[in-house]
């Protein structure tokens, strides 16, 4: 199926991309194209120009800078899945990347594209919240860094403004006593998350010192389960604590529902998957 017509611009630098976006407010960035092209085929998206950023070298690669891992926005899901550096210093991200779509999707789709697209059922957003990641956004007025907590603002909506580009994702290097896990109920056809919960816990002497839990799939956008984080901090993460804490975490009225999973069912799944994610994270700490 053909998309509508558009003009095509391939850029080599972030600055070139920004100036093209400024000249043409209707232009869209093209990263891996694995959300944008399907949407264009279905005429859900109809940009008059595409700015292809896939060959911008400064948007690629994964590197360590002190206690932070800097991941270029154009890093593909496959590169994250296979990264030896991430497996060692932030194992949650390769684990999440491994279950996104299928190998062909992972070979093209990018971390930056997924976060900028902010599909309510996307997998990465929950882990960004659990990890306490932050996003570097560059525009004509310079750059800024936004916390994951303030990045996802609504359904398909983020803190990235028009004419701006997400360039880097920053995640903290895993420290001693930290365990992380992602547990998801996947849609059987698309593999997107019906409900996905990512948990990061810091344990000491069998007691949870710190917990961050992010949820995706169930609501309009990914969000933290702060009540649950508070409820488990200072406690051992045993079955009794977890089953007591993971009850009615979210209200069905705040969730999405469709023919596949009603809002009531999704609310139930949040409790179940939050419990599993915390238990798995504690097991790896």
């Amino acid at each position: 199926m053909y998309t509508n017509q558009f003009s095509y611009h391939r850029v080599n630098t972030v600055q070139e991309a920004i100036s093209l976006l400024q000249k043409n407010p209707d232009a869209r960035l093209l990263a891996g194209g694995h959300s944008l092209i399907p949407a264009m085929k279905l005429r859900l998206s109809d940009p008059s120009a595409l700015v292809d950023i896939s060959r911008v070298a400064e948007l690629k690669g994964i590197r360590q800078r002190g206690n932070t891992l800097v991941i270029g926005a154009m890093t593909t899901h496959s590169e994250i899945e296979d990264s030896a550096l991430l497996k060692q210093l932030c194992p949650l991200l390769p684990e999440v990347a491994h279950i996104i779509g299928d190998p062909a999707v992972r070979n093209r789709g990018t971390l930056g594209g997924s976060l900028a697209h902010a599909d309510p059922a996307a997998d990465y957003p929950a882990s960004m919240l659990a990890l306490g990641a932050s996003m570097k956004i560059v525009g004509s007025n310079g750059d800024r860094v936004v916390d994951a907590d303030n990045f996802f603002t609504g359904m398909f909506a983020t803190a990235i403004g028009s004419g701006e580009i997400l360039t880097e994702i920053h995640v903290p290097v895993k420290t001693a006593g930290v365990g992380m896990a992602y547990e998801t109920m996947m849609h059987p056809a698309s593999r997107y998350a019906i409900v996905g919960v990512a948990a990061m816990v810091r344990m000491s002497g069998g007691v949870c010192q710190e917990a961050r839990v992010g949820m995706t799939g169930a609501g309009h956008h990914a969000m933290r389960l702060s009540g649950l984080e508070a409820a488990v901090t200072g406690k051992p993460l045993d079955a009794a604590t977890l089953s007591a804490a993971c009850k009615s975490l979210v209200r069905p009225a705040d969730l999405l529902g469709d023919h596949f999973a009603s809002a009531d069912y999704r609310a139930h799944l949040v409790d179940v998957y939050a419990q599993r994610a915390l238990a798995a994270a504690a097991g790896k700490a």
Binding site: Y8, H34, I37, S78, P103, A104, N107
Partner: peptide, 19 residues
């Protein structure tokens, strides 16, 4: 529609030829 582009499997229906 899977083909290999630079040695990697991709869905050729989800890639413009210009890419």
């Amino acid at each position: 529609c899977v083909v290999h582009v630079d040695g990697q499997a991709v869905k050729s229906c989800t890639l413009f030829a210009v890419q």
